[in-house]
């Protein structure tokens, strides 16, 4: 029974949303890239770059929002690198993406060691504080879960609406979707496929960068190695789970957050007879099951991972 009681605690749901926040940014970012036809496996490294750049900015005296902006910029720069390699040059998107992840992660660690050659315990910053929404945060259960969160979390939810609006309501969003469906159709309508794809990858990567900065500026208050811990890869799976729709991406991120927050609490309940790794594994197993159920028949962007070369026949 105790295992069920957990579901009715505000702290669980607050944790769900906290865990989901960086995933929302990352998934939206990846979604924009893939909608434009570019798989961005650089996400793990780009999120790391965002985490590091954002944190370093604040550590060196910049404001927290300045840190977020720098994280977005760092993400966009790695997006530009990835986009340039795979769009006009047409390199393999898989290989390039993994290369970007390795490069970006290693660069961050290297830069960290350059800035802090001799520290043993990671230096700390003053992170974002939870922002209580008046009145709403007093609602039982839901209030503390939804309305006593970091400003970045509110931004994440706003981005779901913004990205949705962008993709489905604006001419630029239509252009992004078309280059991911059939670049020849976009070109026949006078669009520049290369430019649109690169800009989409940069914008998506900027969101990934912001997602990374959530980890160092909100969830924790310092930067350490391996802290991204596969969140980028989860985002890749969430994009498939979402069938490339921002709304479902939010749902997927929350679902993963729920699995993860729940297993953390189950670990404390369970006897020592069950190794804790079983619980650690649970969110991933459930995610795979959810993927199988949700995504077997989805319509993926037709031109995903297909390089476009103008005038080729």
């Amino acid at each position: 029974m105790e295992a069920l009681d957990i579901l009715f605690t505000a702290s669980l749901w607050a944790a769900v949303i906290r865990i989901a926040s960086p995933l929302i940014f990352g998934t939206l970012g990846e979604l924009i890239c893939e909608r434009a036809g570019v798989l961005n496996l650089g996400i793990e490294g780009i999120m790391t770059a965002g985490a590091f750049a954002g944190w370093l900015t604040v550590y060196l005296g910049g404001g927290l929002w300045m840190g977020v902006a720098v994280a977005a910029l760092a993400g966009a720069m790695f997006g530009l690198l990835h986009g340039t390699l795979v769009v006009p040059l047409g390199l393999s998107q898989h290989v390039t993406g993994i290369g970007v992840t390795l490069l970006s992660t290693s660069l961050c660690y290297y830069a960290y060691r350059l800035v802090f050659p001799e520290v043993t315990s990671p230096p700390k910053i003053e992170p974002f504080q939870p922002l209580s929404v008046p009145v709403l945060s007093d609602i039982p259960l839901l209030g503390p879960a939804l309305f006593q969160q970091s400003p970045l979390t509110y931004l994440a939810f706003a981005m779901v609406v913004a990205v949705s609006w962008f993709l489905y309501r604006t001419p630029a969003g239509l252009a992004v979707r078309t280059v991911g469906e059939n670049p020849a159709a976009a070109e026949a309508q006078g669009m520049n496929v290369t430019t649109i794809r690169i800009l989409a990858v940069m914008a998506g990567s900027a969101l990934m960068g912001v997602g990374g900065s959530f980890i160092t500026l909100s969830a924790f208050n310092s930067f350490f190695f391996e802290m991204m811990n596969g969140r980028g890869w989860i985002c890749i799976a969430l994009v498939v789970f979402s069938a490339w729709h921002p709304g479902k991406a939010l749902l997927g991120a929350l679902l993963f957050g729920l699995f993860d927050a729940y297993q953390l609490r189950l670990q404390q309940l369970a006897s020592a007879a069950v190794p804790y790794q079983v619980f650690l594994m649970m969110p991933y197993v459930l995610s795979i099951i959810a993927l199988i159920v949700m995504s077997r028949r989805v319509a993926y962007p037709r031109a995903l991972m297909v390089p476009y070369r103008k005038g080729e026949r």
């Binding site: 001419p171 630029a172 979707r177 469906e181 059939n182 020849a184 159709a185 037709r302």
Partner: peptide, 28 residues
Amino acid sequence: HQHFTLADNLTVLDNIILGTEPLWRWRS
């Protein structure tokens, strides 16, 4: 074109208006 240049997963409307509006408008 002989081989149609249409994006199959989009609507007729989307295919037709693509590129006919200035790109940076907040709504179509």
